[in-house]
């Protein structure tokens, strides 16, 4: 388990001390989940998506009809920084 790589992919900065703490913790988590591999699931269809309380698959699809959007002001209202109708973020290219 490369904790540094996981942290990098998650855009987290972690110290060497934290790597030392998290590495065994994450190993334990993975080992716990790996118990599932003991079951033979070769004949079981993977279940994807949700089920209704009755256990039936749901079919959520909608018509192509526009709804009322939030609009610029509301959309930007929670942004840490908004300028001229845009979200402002550190320089990317």
């Amino acid at each position: 388990m490369d904790v540094r790589q996981v942290a990098k992919l998650a855009h987290l900065e972690i110290t060497d001390e934290e790597v030392a703490i998290y590495t065994p913790q994450m190993k334990n988590i993975v080992a716990y989940v790996e118990q599932l591999n003991e079951l033979d699931t070769s004949n079981v269809e993977p279940m994807l998506g949700g089920l209704t309380p009755e256990g039936e698959t749901t079919n959520a699809i909608r018509e192509d009809i526009p709804h009322q959007s939030l609009g610029q002001e509301k959309a930007l209202s929670q942004a840490p920084s908004a300028v001229a109708g845009h979200f402002q973020v550190p320089k990317v290219l």
Binding site: V83, A84, H86, F87, Q88, V89, P90
Partner: peptide, 16 residues
């Protein structure tokens, strides 16, 4: 958006 807005040398702008 990288052009036509303030301080584009320091910031980028997003239109969703």
């Amino acid at each position: 958006v990288h052009e036509g807005l303030p301080d584009v040398d320091k910031f980028s702008y997003i239109d969703l």
